[in-house]
């Protein structure tokens, strides 16, 4: 196995650059092809312009069983509009012509499996993808694609959850590349009321700090405002917003100037 040098990877570079900065890294999740396939590239470029450091581009799946109603909806819309894996790679290539923002592909294993693990990793790397998050591949099943992803220099980001035991967190930290995705609450994805997140999350954050020491730490699930992010990510390297962004798009699309409304929200997430 030829392992590509991942030091030059855009994700690693991003965290290195931010290592001494008090500013939190902001990652946004967007379902590829939502609200329409023509907008995805522009949205990503606009996100970057408005303070986004990292983009998680969602590969839609018909049965997203770890997702709440918001991402179920955006996934359905994208699939109905004919989004395919090849189109997603094309979107990434188009972004790459104009931007160096790190892009992670995120989605369930079945579409990846059907595309073919080898072909998927090769095409993703060639298109300029910087990493992968496959939530239904836990440590136990990592063998299905870990070697191939490493060979293509694609970091595989693993998740830790509030009920992940300490020892397992350390194992995940050892295996994860790029960063560790810290799921702040049990449950499906989706924007939650701030209080609900705040109360349960601190004990988890403390355990993450103790056990995840090798990788940068990004926290997600339930964050919907700059205030949420500041509070929850205080001890993390950064934060991830998905459902709240998609809800904002859903509210404004296709109104005149909807993208500006979305970018204003993105700006407010980062800077308050």
């Amino acid at each position: 196995m030829v392992k590509k040098n991942t030091q030059q990877n855009r994700i690693n570079r991003l965290f290195k650059q931010h290592a001494d900065s008090p500013e939190k890294i902001m990652s946004l999740f967007l379902t590829a092809g939502y609200p329409d396939p023509e907008s995805t590239v522009d949205l990503i470029l606009g996100f970057e312009e408005h303070g986004t450091d990292l983009v998680e581009l969602g590969m839609p799946f018909s049965d997203p069983l770890a997702d709440g109603p918001t991402i179920q909806y955006s996934s359905n819309v994208a699939i109905e509009q004919g989004i395919t894996m090849s189109k997603i790679f094309t979107m990434v290539r188009q972004v790459r012509e104009r931007s160096d923002i790190p892009i992670i592909l995120m989605g369930y294993i079945n579409p990846v499996l059907r595309f073919g693990i080898d072909a998927f990793c090769e095409e993703a790397a060639a298109a300029g993808v910087d990493g992968l998050i496959i939530p239904d591949i836990p440590l136990e099943e990592s063998g299905i694609m870990a070697d191939k992803a490493a060979e293509q220099g694609l970091p595989l980001v693993y998740l830790v959850a509030p009920n992940t035991p300490d020892e397992r967190m350390r194992k995940i930290d050892a295996l994860s590349e790029g960063f560790v995705y810290c799921v702040s609450v049990t449950g499906v994805t989706g924007a939650r009321e701030g209080e609900e997140v705040a109360q349960s999350v601190q004990r988890f954050i403390d355990r993450v700090k103790q056990n995840v020491t090798r990788n940068p730490k990004m926290v997600g699930f339930g964050i919907k405002s700059h205030e949420d992010a500041r509070r929850i990510a205080a001890d993390m390297d950064g934060f991830i917003v998905g459902s709240a962004l998609i809800d904002t798009i859903r509210e404004s699309y296709p109104r005149e100037g909807w993208k500006d409304e979305v970018f204003a929200f993105v700006h407010s997430l980062k800077y308050g």
Binding site: D136, P138, L159, V160, A161, N163, T164, R168, I172, G187
Partner: peptide
């Protein structure tokens, strides 16, 4: 093939 939350 489940999310991390279900492993424990």
């Amino acid at each position: 093939f489940v999310p991390e939350i279900l492993i424990p």
